[in-house]
Simulated assay, not measured.
Amino acid sequence: MAKSSLTRVTDKAAPPRPRKPDPATEQVVERLRRTRSANEITSVIGLKPIRGRSGPKIAY
């Protein structure tokens, strides 16, 4: 085997620490969990309501 000028790393890197979630993101997630319809979801994320001839639509 040829000699290499690079050193061999034998120690494992420390696992990344879990990040604390942003409070604003957590609030939006909780509001989305409580929604029951597509129009409630659109109001939480700031879009206009979904409308059609036969009433609200299921998906955006």
Rank of each mutant, 00 (worst) to 15 (best):
M1T: 10
A2T: 08
A2G: 02
K3G: 05
K3E: 11
S4D: 01
L6D: 01
L6Q: 03
T7C: 01
T7P: 01
R8V: 00
V9Q: 04
V9Y: 01
D11C: 04
D11Q: 07
K12E: 15
K12Q: 11
A14L: 12
P15S: 11
P15M: 06
P15V: 06
P16G: 04
P16E: 07
P16Y: 12
P16W: 10
R17S: 14
R19N: 04
R19K: 14
K20C: 05
P21F: 03
D22V: 08
D22K: 05
D22N: 14
D22Q: 04
P23H: 06
P23A: 15
A24L: 08
A24C: 03
A24W: 05
T25G: 08
T25A: 15
T25H: 10
T25R: 12
T25N: 10
T25C: 03
E26L: 14
Q27T: 09
Q27C: 02
V28I: 14
V28T: 12
V29G: 02
R31C: 05
R31Q: 14
R31T: 07
R31N: 08
L32S: 09
L32M: 12
L32E: 12
L32C: 02
R34L: 10
R34W: 04
R34V: 00
R34M: 01
R34A: 15
R34E: 08
R34F: 03
T35R: 02
T35N: 04
R36Q: 13
R36K: 14
R36L: 12
S37N: 12
S37Q: 07
S37W: 12
S37F: 10
A38W: 03
A38D: 08
A38C: 05
N39T: 02
N39D: 09
N39S: 09
E40W: 05
E40I: 05
I41R: 02
T42F: 07
T42P: 00
T42N: 11
T42Q: 10
T42R: 15
T42G: 02
S43D: 07
S43R: 05
V44R: 03
V44S: 03
I45S: 03
I45Y: 03
G46I: 11
L47N: 08
L47R: 10
L47G: 02
L47E: 06
L47W: 14
L47A: 14
K48I: 07
P49R: 13
P49M: 03
P49Y: 07
P49N: 09
I50C: 11
R51M: 10
G52K: 01
G52Y: 00
G52H: 02
R53K: 09
R53L: 08
S54P: 00
S54V: 06
S54R: 10
S54W: 15
S54D: 13
G55N: 02
G55R: 03
G55V: 05
P56Y: 15
K57C: 13
K57Y: 12
K57G: 15
K57T: 06
K57P: 00
I58H: 12
I58Q: 12
I58A: 15
A59H: 15
Y60Q: 14
Y60F: 15
